[in-house]
Design a protein around this nucleic acid. Structure first.
Lengths: 247, 247
DNA sequence: GTCGGTGAATTTGTCCGACAACCTGTTGAT
DNA sequence: ATCAACAGGTTGTCGGACAAATTCACCGAC
């Protein structure tokens, strides 16, 4: 049953579900395993019969729970093959679905809202360690060798700003909105990223300085100027080549 | 089985699901019936055995579909009683759960991000009809007779601002964040709302004027001042009476 | 050696029957 | 009138059987 060497299932023994509990408890337990990384993304879950045995419930109960998590976007089930983890957080899957259905400009406007607030909060709440890391990431971005590594470095910097806010909810929402944008319109987004992040533009350096100076207003202003430039470029590019999506 | 006269189930005959289709089709079909109003909110669905017979599938298949819709927030199942329609549209249950798990200040910071961006976009994109309605809502708020109707009027005004943005994604996220806040910490939120919306404070009038004047910067500024006042009051109140939530 | 076809093994998908747990409404006793 | 017991109905869970789909190993042809 679990004899496929190419499918490692390095799982600790699952906790037995106490008798009397519901499918909801199985849902919660599976979700916690996913969120906690014990069932990593792209990994295959134990088969239904095994889950049932280890959780001490019937296979039907497991199936109902799995079906819920499949619909919620955390899992993907393939008949004859197995059930795979598709996302780590339920909010990620839900936001992804919603964002991918949205107009790109609208999604960027939402992103703008979060980046401006993140800048403001980062300037307010950042620690000395946050700042040291921010400077490292800014330097790495300036030193990046080509477009791909530049983009990676830029992304790391922006995500670190969101981490400096000390607001995990904002972090989750930011990633939930921005990650689908990256994968769905990858070519366009990358093009925009390059243009907007022309090293001659001062906004990102201003942002880093404002966070260092603990000046929320200046940080928000820098982030807003930055996203306004992005939106201008994006609007022009969409007029030149409209995206066809989600008919 | 359906012999309870006090539980009307005025349902048209359900379409038979073609053989070979999945639980997903039952999910879709039930959802369409709910969204379309054929299963109205607060009404009880036909019992599982009946649904199975009418859809031409097994009871297990119906159960899996129902479980999904329960988890998605559309249905509520009560053992021994029946399954009731709780909402007409698939609420973002995942976002709701996430917000309810968050620190209240963090959630308000996210709300601030969206209200500021909504103000800016409303001033940019609002139509004449939007503005006329905004003025009506502002007047209704000023004329509200007591705390409850004041709150309702205020809420209607703020949600209308978000509608004026012409950004449905922002609208969904705003409601996804704000609605759980309202229900979860209702007493606290209402207290904050009252204090922050002291009629002597100018922010909301400034916001309405800036939207009328199509001045995004002034609108964003008014919304920011408004939410900053809210956050100050909220911080003080949380120090006085910390919320115990979601241990 | 490579490639394609076939069949076995495995896993999910569906159905069914049985019974437990729970809820609602009715009836009878006080 | 209230309360308790009971019956009937409904959801929740379990287990078994089998269909449908996928993967993989084996074998034969080239």
């Amino acid at each position: 049953m679990e004899g496929r060497a190419e499918r490692p299932e390095p799982l600790p023994a699952l906790t037995r579900v106490p008798r009397g509990s519901l499918t909801d408890q199985v849902i919660d337990q599976l979700r916690e395993r996913i969120v906690g990384g014990q069932f990593p993304v792209d990994q295959r879950l134990p088969v239904e019969a095994s889950l049932a045995r280890e959780l001490g419930v019937g296979r039907s109960t497991v199936r109902e729970a799995l079906r819920v998590l499949v619909h919620a976007g955390l899992l993907e089930s393939r008949q004859g093959d197995g059930t795979y983890v598709r996302a780590r957080h339920e909010t990620d899957a839900a936001l992804r679905r919603r964002v991918l259905k949205a107009d790109v400009i609208n999604a960027y406007e939402v992103r703008r809202a979060m980046e401006v607030e993140a800048a403001r909060l980062a300037a307010t709440h950042r620690s000395a360690a946050d700042l040291a890391r921010l400077h490292e990431l800014a330097a790495a971005r300036d030193d990046a060798a080509g477009p791909e590594s530049y983009r990676r470095a830029d992304r790391a910097l922006r995500e670190h700003v969101v981490e400096c806010t000390g607001n995990p909810l904002l972090g989750d929402l930011y990633r939930g909105v921005v990650d689908p944008l990256r994968s769905a319109a990858a070519g366009l987004v990358d093009e925009v990223d390059l243009v907007r992040d022309d090293p001659a533009r001062p906004e990102t350096a201003d942002l880093v300085r404002a966070i260092a100076d603990q000046d929320p207003r200046a940080a928000a202003d820098a982030a807003a100027r930055h996203m306004d430039a992005v939106l201008r470029v994006l609007t022009v590019m969409l007029q030149a080549a409209p995206i066809r999506r989600h008919s």
